[in-house]
Design a protein around this nucleic acid. Structure first.
Length: 390
RNA sequence: GUGAUCGUAGCUCAGUUUGGUUAGAGCGCCUGGUUGUGGUCCAGGAGGUCGCGGGUUCAAAUCCCGUCGGUCACCCCA
């Protein structure tokens, strides 16, 4: 037997219905509000992510699907899409400010578990160009609308990680502090000192947390300007009636963020996150262009949302194919959807198939009747009778 | 990258501890009949490289090793 590739997913049945439901609501939340949908390539130059996500991040060092193509190019299956959006924007709209949305497969080579797959779907939105705090607010407001249309109960966590320079000063102090306390830290956290220091802060280890709780707080290393902007932003959120929690230890995994970072948490898992990335374009050598964005884990949303699958209410049955075709053509013209038996089986088998498929009405094309399967009432078949029923 | 656990029919599983006839059950599926208050009932039938590959043995679904895949957790992250 040929098994499926590790960490991949077959979305079928209710999961497939949820996928469509989420995709629909995503389009109407973002694309319909000026975040133009962009279908980006799945393969990119490795360099794009080495530079943007950060050479030291685990995504780059361990988790990318890398290969050389026949032209000897170093390519990867994209592990995320923000860098691609910025690449696109710089190539075609360098001097403009634009909003984008995307919905597609991403790839990270890591061991699968609940809500974590090697091939996974992200839905995201970005505002790129000359932007300000209002852009940040827009992204959050639109995200919240999206999640509430999906009826996902989520909690918004926010933080600011300041400018690159401010953060570097903070990291230096943090390194000193963690080095001093390294005997109390888990070995995973000790390995991150000096390399990925910020991520020690969101360790789940309870002993680590005793140390991180007393660690220097980022706010003490930020300039008044940064802090003022952050306070103003928080006031705006409150004015908008947006419920949020502040989490000074929320740092995010990607190197390119600055100032605002945020996450949406539902049922204990992060279903979406994002932040401001004013440095990303420069890191890529593309000039100074700002951006803010959000990405949602569609697989995680699929595992969270409740949606009722599209129900097909009518099934046609008949003792011969010409009866079946005659009626199905009529329904096609009327724009009414229906099920057909999978093959030309005997009538009772078809009737059982209708019951199994959970339809409400069976049209017996040979008898010209509509039967309500729930109460067994029959009536003459014609389009206007059918329309009254469905 | 690390650890735990699982893999037998389309599905859910029994059988593995203690190796031993042609590997079973329920549901589903197919055929015929019955049933028009059509979902019932009756009879028959198809369907299994026991995840895969090695090894031990007279003999392996069962023991050993490896590998692939599922689930969950760590790491990491959406």
């Amino acid at each position: 037997m040929i098994e499926q590739v590790k960490g991949t997913r077959n979305l079928y049945g209710l999961d497939a219905q949820k996928y469509l439901y989420i995709y629909d609501i995503f389009l109407s939340s973002f694309n319909s509000y000026g975040y133009d949908l962009i279908e980006l390539p799945t393969i990119e130059h490795k360099e794009l992510f080495n530079k943007s996500i950060g050479e030291n991040s685990e995504i780059v060092t361990k988790q990318m699907y890398e290969f050389k193509d026949k032209g000897n190019r170093d390519l990867v299956l994209r592990p995320e899409a923000t860098a691609s959006v910025v690449r696109f924007h710089n190539e075609f709209f360098k001097n403009e400010s634009k909003k984008y949305s995307y919905f597609g497969k991403m790839f990270r080579y890591e061991n699968p578990q609940k809500n974590r797959y090697r091939e996974f779907i992200q839905a995201g939105a970005e505002i790129v160009g000359t932007i300000d705090k209002y852009s940040d607010l827009q992204i959050l407001k639109t995200s919240i609308r999206f999640l509430s249309l999906l009826k996902v109960n989520s909690k918004l966590n926010i933080n600011t990680i300041g400018t690159k320079e401010e953060r570097e000063g903070y990291i230096r102090e943090l390194d000193k502090y963690f080095f001093k306390n390294k005997n109390e830290l888990s070995k995973e956290s000790v390995e991150k000192i000096g390399k990925n220091t910020l991520r020690i802060l969101d360790s789940n280890d309870p002993f680590d947390n005793q140390i991180t709780d007393l660690a220097p707080v980022i706010y003490d290393f930020l300039s008044n300007e940064t802090l003022d902007q952050y306070e103003t932003f928080k006031k705006e959120l409150m004015n908008e009636g947006i419920d949020f929690a502040e989490n000074p230890k929320l740092v995010r995994g990607l190197d390119y963020y600055n100032d605002l970072t945020f996450e949406f948490i539902a049922n204990g898992t992060v279903v979406g996150g994002g932040g401001r990335y004013d440095g990303l374009s420069e890191i890529l050598g593309l000039g100074k262009i700002s951006g803010v964005g959000v990405a949602f884990g569609v697989d995680r949303l699929i595992n969270t949302v409740n949606s009722t699958p599209h129900k097909i209410k009518v099934m046609l049955i008949a003792q011969n194919l010409s009866d079946l075709n005659f009626v199905s053509t009529k329904l096609d013209k009327a724009g009414i959807s229906y099920l057909l038996p999978v093959r030309d089986s005997k009538e009772n088998t078809q009737y059982k198939e209708a019951i199994k498929n959970n339809v409400d009405y069976v049209i017996n094309c040979s008898e010209n009747t509509i039967k309500n399967i729930n109460n067994n009432e029959s009536m003459k078949f014609n389009i206007s009778n059918l329309r009254k029923l469905i």
